[in-house]
């Protein structure tokens, strides 16, 4: 099942125009307009409650919105099989005693009845990619937070989507896990568009194409060098955050901002 959009370059993956989302009248995000190239890696940053998750959900067509979202020229609901979503880990129900293999197989088999050998092969490959294939028969709820996150990452890539939408995928990861996942992202972004919510951009600075600073509205959208400035970060978080620059690379000091 090869991808229809693989190899297509410089096509815009996502076009968002005047996107506004309200929850019972409360405006969570307002008038967001951006275009995202394919393939590319886009980081979304902003303080808690800024509307980052809301933005991702609108891209996925999971919540009602005003404005337009078009993905490969179509509405999100029409291209669902090309999207992979990794929700914030807190949203998952650990009461269900699934095995690791069940978790990764779910997206492949939830719409048919039997399990094909081909599905098992793909699930194993996805777990291999995140270094969790040895846990094939383990219970998901018995894993550590970081291991769970790796398994969920595998579940997100198992359907081989063209666009990956990841909500804080490193929140429970230790340094080693984080580096392994970043390595994987480096490979994936060669042919996929990755949209990723992060509180700490530093480990991804080298492979980030664009950054969105979001706080209800888009404060800035551009390359890392353009967007990650002390002025912008102060506007975003409301406190002074030093930025160190080395050529095109810059680092946010005290990266993990939960301001």
């Amino acid at each position: 099942m090869g991808s229809r959009y693989r190899g297509v370059r410089n096509l815009s993956a996502i076009e968002v125009k005047n996107l506004t989302v309200r929850y019972d009248g409360y405006v969570a995000i307002e008038d967001v307009s951006i275009t995202i190239d394919h393939p590319s890696l886009v980081v979304v940053m902003g303080p808690n409650g800024a509307g980052k998750t809301t933005f991702l959900k609108a891209l996925l067509g999971l919540i009602p919105y005003n404005g337009t979202v078009s993905i490969f020229g179509k509405s999100p609901r029409k291209v669902r099989d090309r999207l992979g979503y990794l929700p914030q880990r807190e949203r998952i129900n650990l009461n269900v005693p699934l095995k690791v293999r069940d978790v990764v197989l779910l997206p492949l088999i939830s719409r048919k009845t039997g399990i094909k050998r081909y599905d098992v092969k793909r699930a194993k490959e996805a777990l291999e990619a995140v270094g969790m294939v040895d846990f094939w028969d383990s219970r998901f709820d018995s894993l550590s937070g970081g291991q769970q996150q790796r398994v969920l990452f595998a579940r997100t890539i198992v359907t081989d989507p063209d666009i990956l939408i990841l909500d804080e995928p490193f929140s429970a990861a230790d340094v080693r896990t984080k580096l392994a996942l970043i390595d994987l992202l480096h490979k994936l972004k060669r042919e996929k568009t990755v949209i990723i919510v992060l509180h700490d951009i530093n480990p991804l600075v080298e492979c980030t194409d664009r950054v969105i600073l979001l706080n209800r509205r888009v404060l800035a959208y551009g390359t890392v060098a353009e967007v990650i400035t002390e002025d912008n970060l102060e506007k975003l978080y409301g406190t002074k955050i030093p930025v160190i620059r080395q050529g095109p690379v810059c680092y946010v000091v005290g990266g993990d901002r939960h301001a």
């Binding site: 959900k57 669902r80 929700p87 949203r91 998952i92 129900n93 779910l106």
Partner: peptide, 9 residues
């Protein structure tokens, strides 16, 4: 197990 991902798929 994960209603949001299920919906997304």
């Amino acid at each position: 197990f994960d209603p949001e991902s299920a919906e997304a798929l």
